[in-house]
């Protein structure tokens, strides 16, 4: 039997319409897209990331945004009990201008209480990000950056840790279950004293899970590479040169002291990260210095 052309046309039209619709819906529901459109990650990698995120969704994702906010604030307070803030309003304003602008260009520009950045007064080479959107960068880390693009790369990497929810994933699963399933006392604004003690202990242990991972042990290598990938996406999208991430890692490689308690301990070697990044960006090319941008960057760095 000969099928008329007209049926064929209808069928093709149907497929195009319906599959187009399907794609739109998918695109809308994927909250964690890390930039398949930019070609930085291929679809297979994206699928793997989405799959792993979905598998974990029943656990840490069940914290409300407000609970994540309180977790992050306490993590921030612990960081600030170990490092003093660098008291210089101009440099902190500058790092917020840069950081908050980068966050706005990311896939998750909005977070419960916004992104906020602070310089820590330490020669260590380090940076931390809390699940609530607080980002800390040491003076030592700033000194590894030779351009604003390089500093943008550091901040984009930290923003990526927040968006990929790496901090929350450090919390022990039983603690999460406990926090999400305990009953409340009827009519009571406050917890009963016994419950409160237990809840506080659980909260405290959860915070310690995050801070010990972040400060002492470091995330997995896989998380660090993922954060680098997302950082490349953010940098490209806004108009910074992603090769700046490589440049910063080269400088860091020279400054890091083997056996140091900072990035040397908690991160994969700069060389291994550079190799992975170059797969996304192509071989390293020196970052072009834009005069006006460099002038304002140097004005800030001079204040350290």
């Amino acid at each position: 039997m000969k099928v008329p052309y007209s049926y064929f046309i209808v069928a093709v039209f149907a497929i195009i319409t319906l599959s187009g619709c399907h794609t739109v819906q998918n695109a809308a529901t994927l909250a964690t897209s890390v930039g398949t459109t930019t070609g930085v990650i291929d679809t297979q990698q994206a699928a793997a990331i989405q799959k792993s995120v979905a598998a974990l969704a029943k656990t840490f994702e069940d914290f409300t945004p407000e609970q994540q906010y309180y977790i992050g604030r306490s993590v921030g307070a612990v960081v600030l009990s170990r490092y003093k803030p660098y008291q210089n309003d101009q440099i902190n304003q500058y790092i917020n201008l840069l950081g908050q602008t980068l966050a706005q260009a990311s896939d998750m520009p909005e977070i419960f209480n916004g992104y906020h950045f602070l310089v820590l007064d330490s020669a260590d080479i380090n940076a931390f990000a809390t699940p609530s959107g607080l980002v800390f960068v040491t003076r030592g880390m700033l000194e590894c950056c030779q351009t604003e693009d390089a500093l943008a790369a550091v901040l984009a990497h930290e923003i990526a840790h927040i968006q990929l929810k790496h901090g929350l994933q450090a919390i022990n699963r039983e603690r999460i279950t406990y926090a999400l399933t305990t009953t409340a006392t009827e009519g009571a604004k406050a917890f009963g004293s016994q419950e409160l003690a237990e809840m506080t202990k659980n909260f405290e242990d959860s915070i310690m899970n995050i801070t010990s991972t972040m400060i002492n042990n470091g995330y997995s290598r896989a998380f660090e590479y993922q954060a680098d990938q997302s950082a490349v996406v953010i940098l490209r999208r806004i108009g910074y040169d992603p090769h700046a991430l490589v440049e910063m890692l080269m400088a860091m490689g020279k400054h890091l002291k083997p056996g140091g308690a900072d990035f040397a301990k908690t991160h994969p070697s700069p060389q291994s990260r550079i190799e992975k990044i170059e797969k996304l960006t192509g071989s390293y090319k020196k970052v072009a210095v834009v005069e006006q941008r460099q002038a304002r960057f140097l004005r800030m760095i001079k204040r350290l």
Binding site: A77, L134, T200, E204
Partner: peptide, 24 residues
């Protein structure tokens, strides 16, 4: 929920560990 990680737990955590949230 009435429970969960909230301002009250933060206050308990702060007092117990003598943390300062001023900078946060």
């Amino acid at each position: 929920a009435g429970k969960g990680f909230n301002a009250q737990l933060e206050a308990e955590f702060r007092n117990k560990n003598q943390l300062d949230f001023t900078q946060v």
